[in-house]
Design a protein around this nucleic acid. Structure first.
Lengths: 213, 213
DNA sequence: AGCGTGGCACGTACGGTGTACGTCCGTCAA
DNA sequence: TTGACGGACGTACACCGTACGTGCCACGCT
């Protein structure tokens, strides 16, 4: 029985699989090894330590994003597509999202999207400094959005409790919060994400217009 | 010698202190107890478990934000102030920031800022649904910004290496990234944050104008 | 005064974790 | 044939969260 030889990619894949199945807290070298039907210490022949493994997980997830960039499309559409591509992470690997955003990886895995985004921004007339600033703002927004999206599901979503029992909040201290309970309780992540993306694009467009004037 | 009696606030304070001194990874019930000069299990008389302790840390840090809201000021200025208030977290408790954003707490600690922000937004003419959307977008941006700001300091900042050795990136595959190396390498977090905040405010203002028309 | 009683500090113990180190074995080069 | 070497694995250690039991002390009641 020629079992697949142990390898770094196989270990990383098992780790991702485990995180998606049982959550990021459940991950341990022993569990991964068990899932692979292998001794714990064998992992260390391919991965220096657990932190590096998690970095590899983040890198793998990140590099799995499908960026389809159409250079002929309107720049607003291109920005939209790139933003949506990032959000795919939260869809394909919801439980891994926290891992991805919480470790800053210093590998070229994240460079391709950066390059694409900078190219897009510069092609519409922003200078380098401004392109970088805008990119950073976009990334911040996207990261924050992903965190909201996956944070709402801690491990298993309970039935459906909004963050606070709305009955408990004092209507005189928090009138707005109370009257907007319905809106605050529900959250269509996709609509929310699109709304913010459009707002950002409009802001950028406005800045661009002012700049060209 | 009447030692201060053990109490939940004292435990939480010790936890925050430990995190700030040694990083979020270093925290353990045993270390906290040792810092307080107390047996480990004594902690459990005041805190049900470690997760609850971390929630309490998040809540305490969050409720420590100084929100000064001037109802007479321009709404743009009020939004600015509230955004900056959040960013104080990253200044006062840099190592705790990850803890704060990574646990979704279901306590009224985060309600005050929400209430203020909603009130501000509604006072300038947004309806409830839109106010909530805008607030969510702002929070996403702020959270993402804070993560960038503190993520740059993993544990101890090395000398000063930008995320990638710029020499290593291929200039033909990543021309923009390469040519903007200087801009990408340096990051004035305050300026960056202000830039994004202003852009967001402008976007909101634009939306408001369109809405009133 | 005597006597519960309940809260709190604490020790011990158990199952789990990351990983340093040593051992064994299969493969391949000389 | 032999030597070296890389990879799989077992053992061991320090540390983790926390369930459980024990003892102390301050209090309210009779």
């Amino acid at each position: 029985m020629p079992v697949e030889p142990l390898s770094r990619p196989r270990i990383v894949a098992a780790a991702i699989d485990l995180i998606e199945r049982e959550g990021a807290d459940a991950i341990s070298m022993r569990r991964i090894a068990a899932d692979l039907g292998v001794g714990v210490m064998s992992l260390y022949n391919h991965v220096p330590n657990k932190a590096a493994l998690l970095d590899a997980v983040a890198e793998t997830v990140l590099s799995g994003i499908e960026f389809t960039d159409d250079p002929d499309a309107d720049w607003t559409e291109r920005v939209r597509m790139q933003a949506r591509a990032f959000r795919q992470i939260a869809h394909h690997y919801p439980r891994c999202t926290m891992v991805v955003v919480s470790r800053q990886l210093q590998s070229p895995a994240g460079l391709l999207p950066v390059e694409r985004a900078l190219a897009t921004l510069r092609s519409v007339g922003f200078d380098g400094e401004e392109a970088v600033r805008i990119l950073r703002m976009f990334i911040a927004y996207i990261v924050g959005s992903l965190l909201r999206e996956v944070g709402v599901t801690p491990t298993f979503a309970p039935v459906h409790h909004s963050q606070v029992d709305i009955e408990k909040v004092d209507p005189v201290l928090f009138p707005e919060t109370r009257s907007l309970a319905a809106e605050l309780g529900a959250c269509d992540h996709e609509a929310e994400f699109e709304f913010g993306t459009e707002l950002l694009i409009q802001a950028i467009a406005g800045r661009l217009a002012r700049r060209k004037r």
